[in-house]
Structures are given as C-alpha cells and as structure tokens.
Amino acid sequence: MIEATGLTKVYGEKTAVDGVSFTVQAGRVTGFLGPNGAGKSTTMRMIMGLDRPTSGSVTVNGVPFAQHAAPLREVGSLLDAKAVHTGRTAYNHLLAMAATHSIPRKRVQEVIEMTGLGEVARKKVKGFSLGMGQRLGIAAALLGDPQTIILDEPVNGLDPEGVVWVRNLVKYLASEGRTVFLSSHLMSEMAMTADHLIVIGRGRIIADAPIGEIITGKGQSRARVRTDQPEQLMRLLADDGVSVEVQDHELLEVTGLPARDIARTALDNRIMVYELTPLQASLEEAYMELTKDEVEYHSLITTGAAAPTQTGGQQ
C-alpha cells in the first residue's frame, strides 16, 4: 500500500505537485493518469525517495521507502527506461543491482527470461531500442520479487505484443495481492489495464475512483437526439441541470436527462424524433473533460504561424 499525504514539490516558481493525497491499495492495478507535465513522474520519484518532497510525506507499507531494510525487495520501480549506464550489458546492469541485496544470479537469469531479454542480455544497452530498454527496466523492477511495483509509463515504446504482455503482467501481479501503481498519459491503455484510477492534472488530483465510476462521470446521462424541430424541443427540455447543445442542423446533445424522459417530452408535444441514442462516455472523453483546464501544453494551430503556448517546462 502506498500512502501520500499532502505531497508537494516545488521547483523554483513552479509547483509540480501540489498537496497531493492518495492511497494505492494492494491487490488491484491503480492507474496514475494525467497529461504530460502533470506531476506523475515527480510523484513517483518522491515515493522512491529520489526527490525530496517540499512538504508532505509518502510511505510504502507504512514506512518511507528509504527506511526499509531491503528496499529492492520491498518496492520495484521502473521510473525511466534510461536509468541504465548504456555502456554496460543488460546482464551486468542487473547483476550489479542484484548484488546490493544478495539476490542470486539465478533470479537475474529468471527476470531476463521473463522479460524476453534472453537474446540481448549480453549486449550493451547502448544498442537497445526503446522497447528493449523498457523490458530491461521492468526486469530490474521485478528483480527483488517486490510486494509493491511502481511503473512510470511502462508501455512507452513497446510493440503491440509487449503492450499486451505488460497488461497481463500487471494484472497478474495485482491478482497475487501485490500493490501495482502505473502511470500513463494514454487513457485507452488505462481503460484496458487499471481497476482504479487516480487522475492528476497540474499537480493536483482531479479524480480518484474506480475506473467504471470515472467513465460514468457524475452519473449524468447523455443522449443524442435528431429531430425536425430542434428549437421547440430545446425550449421544452430546458430545465435545471439539463443542458442542450446544438451539434448540427437538427442534431442535439442533451445532458442531464435520461433518454426515456426526452422521448416522453417529445411524444407529449408531438415532436418527431428520428434518432435518440443514449451515450456512454468513453474514458477518453471523461479524461478530456476532467483535464481540459489542466493540460500544460495546448496544441494551437492558427492560420499562418503556430503560436507556442506552453506555460512552463516539463518536470
């Protein structure tokens, strides 16, 4: 279990992580979702004791990571696929890490096989593709057979087969009762992998809920309506908590009213409706909705020159 309380990290003028509190439970995959620069990596580095929080604290199984007697056996992490000296072979890298905890060579060989690095293990990391680097990082994370696994963007650069493998691996690890915390900026990946989501934007937690709940949003139903008389219907539907958006000629999107009520209103007022589709938000939409004000880098294409709009550096 990972517990963060009021975790804050300030770099100069910029607050990368702003008073974040959350709990990552054992036995399920917890996704850490947010746009680039939202503070995911900074938070993970603070969990691993690599960055010192400006204020607040974070513990792993009740103890700050650095206080554990055998850190590698407690928490395995992939923070950055490039956390390797590229002049060393993958095998020697793992061997040196294993040596700190007297992890036997047999286990080193095991994680190499497990991550499919067998053929390249004796080659220098310099020549590795991004995907191979990710596999090596995951191998290093699993080395100590840890109870808690933290993976920062593990599927970055992986081929489709590798993506499926990571997905199955983290689910399997969670099913064994381990704590699995993985970050991504890809909502589609999270939808496939995570049981629980913590969404972060500009250093603040925006949502912390089971994935199903985040997709349903605040329980508001939405429906797409096509009708001959959009203006009349809009007027009739207008009520507290109901918003109607004109999407196109004769096409409306109604939020906050079940499809059944829309049909009833239309029938009562003899308005012909030729499409009525209840909409379920995809995680992608939910995510966009949650983070629309929080993204750090907006793409902005203007006629002529594209204006740079970023407001700060990525941490």
């Binding site: 055998a70 850190p71 056996r73 040596a99 700190t100 905890h101 286990r107 095991e110 497990m114």
Partner: peptide, 28 residues
C-alpha cells in the same frame, strides 16, 4: 514471455538480505 515464472522465490515477510555495506561494495 510468460508470467508463470513469477511464481517463485521467497515467501513474503521473511527477513531477506538488504543493502549491507559489503554487498554495496561488491555491486560497485
């Protein structure tokens, strides 16, 4: 690449070796 190989090693909770100075020296 299977996840079966994970079923291995020590039971959790036992005191397993951590980074003693000699081990770190060996690693370096």
């Amino acid at each position: 690449m299977s996840t079966a190989a994970l079923q291995s090693s020590r039971p959790h909770g036992t005191a397993a070796p951590g980074p003693s100075f000699l081990r770190v020296l060996n690693s370096e």
